[in-house]
Amino acid sequence: MNTVIVENIHKSYKKIVALEDITFSVDKGEIFGFIGPDGAGKTSLFRILVTLLLPDSGKATVMGLDVVKDYKKIRKMVGYMPGRFSLYQDLTVEENLTFFATIFSTTIQENYHLIKDIYSQIEPFKDRRAGALSGGMKQKLALSCALIHKPEVLFLDEPTTGVDAVSRKEFWEMLKSLRNAGITIVVSTPYMDEASLCDRVALIQNGSILKIDKPDLITSSFGKNILAIRSSNIHKLLNDLSNYPACDSVFPFGQYVHYTAKENRISKEELEKYLTALGHQQLEINPIEPNIEDCFMSLMNEAS
């Protein structure tokens, strides 16, 4: 069963096209990720799905309910965590949670079991004002508030942006256990490496979806061989490789450079000869499997 169905959604702000013909569906009980940079359209899409923004055209349903006509019903059934921290900074941790429970005519006690794993981590600070919490703790409180009315679907807009790696890891572990409890999760992130933590992902750029699939199927359909190359001078390596006639793409990836060849004609030996002749030292050339970022860039190039 599809929890979210989106068909041909368009949204523009004056001249700027935010979403262009977006179509996808989310299955019940999956973690569905939108992976894309700032300005890709992630927030506009989430706001449409939680009924805070009207699409220009197209149709979208959440739990079978129309996002335009049935907005009141949808609001009771979804949990939403906006990109910006939007709890009351001057209320304490406990006051914020009580406030959101009250709005949805419930109590902390009634649904405590749902938030227990997450909330118990910040409960020792329940009398602290929300504004005085660390980034990771704010995020846990926001998630608790989004969960307190026992939603069927969670929409989390960039929940891990600006949070350190340890808190990010903990956050994803929480999402997994919520998913296992049967909650459908739609989440967005600009961190490409978080794609592998989702059941399925949509890669999104400039208001369009580049691809939707399981993360491992996206990487396995890359279709080209990649060499990871390093030398003692990365800057020179990048320049020399982009001047190499057979070069299709060359991108820095940390201490390595990822290289693909035109028509996939890759010869490690020839490359080694070429680079050695140009004076590269400590040369290392290894075939590797593509990652999501390789795929994203290749799809971006195809789209433009």
């Binding site: 940079p37 890709a40 600006g162 600009p190 820095p252 971006m300």
Partner: peptide
């Protein structure tokens, strides 16, 4: 380079290397 697309991000690192 937080939040920018991966291609722009790499162009930016090129600039830093330079």
């Amino acid at each position: 380079t937080g939040g920018v697309d991966p291609i722009t991000r790499r162009q930016f690192w090129n600039q830093i290397y330079e």
